[in-house]
């Protein structure tokens, strides 16, 4: 499977990396490794999870070759987030992306932009 294809299915890698960095930040505090902590949807984890689940929708169209549907792989987070927000707020827009983005709130858009532009794992 191509790296791009993997991008949409790297849940375990991303959430594991997140958990690792969290535990790294809290040296001496073992609470981050308790089962309760892992099952918890604490803010950093839930934002990653949110981005990841939303990205499963994106990959139904994006990720292939060709110009008609652009890929997001080479964009940075801020650029992608700004583009998605522009679709949401442009009241006159009629493309598929305008119509879709109106269904998501700003936090969703931030989460998915962060997830899709995070460095590839593995």
């Amino acid at each position: 499977m191509s790296p791009k294809a993997l991008k949409s299915i790297s849940i375990a890698a991303t959430s594991a990396a997140m958990a690792f960095s969290l535990s790294g930040c809290s040296a001496g505090d073992t609470s981050a490794e308790t089962p309760a902590r892992a099952a918890d949807t604490s803010p950093p984890d839930s934002a990653v999870l949110r981005g990841q689940t939303l990205a499963l929708t994106c990959s139904g169209c994006h990720g292939g070759s060709g110009d008609a549907i652009p890929d997001y792989q080479d964009l940075d987070r801020a650029t992608l987030e700004a583009r998605l927000l522009a679709y949401k707020t442009d009241a006159d827009g009629t493309t598929v992306m305008h119509r879709l983005m109106r269904g998501y709130d700003e936090a969703d858009i931030a989460s998915v932009a962060t997830y899709l532009t995070a460095p590839e794992e593995g």
């Binding site: 294809a5 949409s8 990959s59 139904g60 169209c61 994006h62 990720g63 292939g64 070759s65 060709g66 110009d67 008609a68 549907i69 598929v96």
Partner: peptide, 13 residues
């Protein structure tokens, strides 16, 4: 053109 790109992507995935 989007339709064609969509078909390619979803069948590939």
């Amino acid at each position: 053109a989007e339709a064609e790109a969509w078909f390619e992507q979803i069948t590939q995935q």
